[in-house]
Simulated scan of single mutants.
Amino acid sequence: MKDKTIDYVLKTTWLAVTKMYNEEAAKFDSTMATGFALLSIDPEKGTPSTSMGPKMGMEATSLSRTLKSMEARGLIERHPNPEDGRGVLIFLTDFGKEKRAYSREKVLTFNETIRKSVTEEQLNNFYEVAEKINNMISNKNIYNQKENSL
C-alpha cells in the first residue's frame, strides 16, 4: 500500500465499510444512513434535528430526506422542542428503538472483529493519525495556509 496516497486509502476503506453496512442493512430493508441516524438519536430524551447533521457529517438536504423516510417507516416521531419553539426534537418509536438496537449490535460486531485482528498499538496509531488528519483539516492547515512570499 506504500504507493497509494493517504486520501485514496481513506476513501476506498470508507467505501468498503459503507458497502458492508448497506449490504447488511438491505437485509432489513434499510440503509447505513438510517442506522447511523438511529444511533445518533438519544433513545430517552430525543435529539434536536439541528444537531443531527453536524453530528453525522450529513448535509441538511440528505438528513432531511433520511428523516422523512424514517418517519414514513415509523422509526421516528417529530415533536416541537419545548425549550425552543422553532426547533424540533426527534424521538425514536418503539420500532425505532428496536432497529437502533440492531444497528448498535452491527456496529459493535464490526468494532469487536477489527479489535481482534489488530493490536492495541495499531488501533491507537490509527486513531492518532485519524485525529491528526481531522485536526489539520479543521484548522485549515493543508490548503489554506498563508503563502510564503518569494
Results as ranks from 00 to 15, higher is better:
112 E>H: 14
107 V>D: 00
16 A>R: 06
116 K>Q: 15
79 H>R: 15
69 S>K: 09
100 R>P: 03
11 K>Y: 13
127 Y>K: 08
58 M>S: 05
34 T>F: 02
57 G>Y: 07
26 A>V: 06
96 G>H: 07
42 D>C: 06
52 M>G: 05
71 E>V: 04
44 E>L: 14
33 A>T: 14
102 Y>Q: 11
114 I>V: 15
85 G>L: 15
95 F>I: 14
123 L>A: 08
22 N>Q: 04
31 T>G: 01
45 K>N: 08
116 K>Y: 13
86 R>L: 15
42 D>A: 04
55 K>V: 05
120 E>M: 09
15 L>A: 09
57 G>L: 09
19 K>C: 06
36 F>I: 07
36 F>C: 10
56 M>K: 05
34 T>K: 04
19 K>E: 09
22 N>W: 00
37 A>M: 02
114 I>F: 15
115 R>M: 10
54 P>C: 09
117 S>T: 05
81 N>A: 11
33 A>R: 13
46 G>Q: 03
17 V>Y: 04
67 L>P: 08
33 A>P: 06
75 L>T: 06
32 M>F: 15
113 T>Y: 10
23 E>L: 05
30 S>W: 09
88 V>S: 01
104 R>P: 00
13 T>S: 15
93 T>H: 04
83 E>Q: 14
106 K>Q: 11
124 N>Q: 11
47 T>R: 06
28 F>A: 04
65 R>M: 08
89 L>G: 06
20 M>T: 15
68 K>R: 13
115 R>Y: 11
82 P>N: 07
132 K>H: 07
